[in-house]
């Protein structure tokens, strides 16, 4: 039964990575994308697996095993896709982040410039 928990920041990053990767979203590629998105934080493969399991338990993503490939020693990849509740949750998080940015930017200015 999917739960309607709000997303943590790491979960948002993982969901964003899955959306951007499309059909090629599996452990290694998700970890690389999350690493690029969260430039200041290192994400280990283990942390990615935990987040993916949690998102799957919440019903926000689903997974399937792909065909085995020689490049992985004949092992399959566990690929992920974002389900409708996950898409909704991510959109809500993005809207909240946008509202926060709009409120703060008149006071602090553009945070992108400050952080380089």
């Amino acid at each position: 039964m999917p739960r309607s928990d709000s997303l943590g920041q790491f979960e948002q990053l993982v969901l964003t990575a899955i959306v951007t990767l499309g059909d090629n979203a599996y452990g290694v590629t998700i970890q690389k994308t999350v690493h690029q998105l969260a430039s200041s934080k290192a994400a280990t493969l283990g942390a990615i697996y935990v987040a993916l399991d949690r998102l799957e338990d919440k019903g926000l993503v689903s997974s399937w095993l792909s065909e085995p490939t020689a490049a992985r020693g004949g092992r399959a990849k566990r690929c992920y896709r974002v389900e409708a509740p996950g898409e909704r949750a991510l959109k809500e998080s993005l809207a909240t982040a946008r509202r926060m940015a709009n409120s703060v930017m008149p006071i602090w200015g553009d945070p992108h410039k400050e952080l380089g």
């Binding site: 452990g27 493969l45 992985r72």
Partner: peptide, 26 residues
């Protein structure tokens, strides 16, 4: 080494995790 890691991994996660580790190794 793969056999040792495999025995420590739960069966449900064994194949994809070993594959990911091998991909990163390469």
């Amino acid at each position: 080494m793969q056999a040792a890691v495999s025995s420590l991994l739960p069966p449900a996660a064994r194949e994809p995790v070993l594959g990911d580790l091998e991909e990163r190794f390469a």
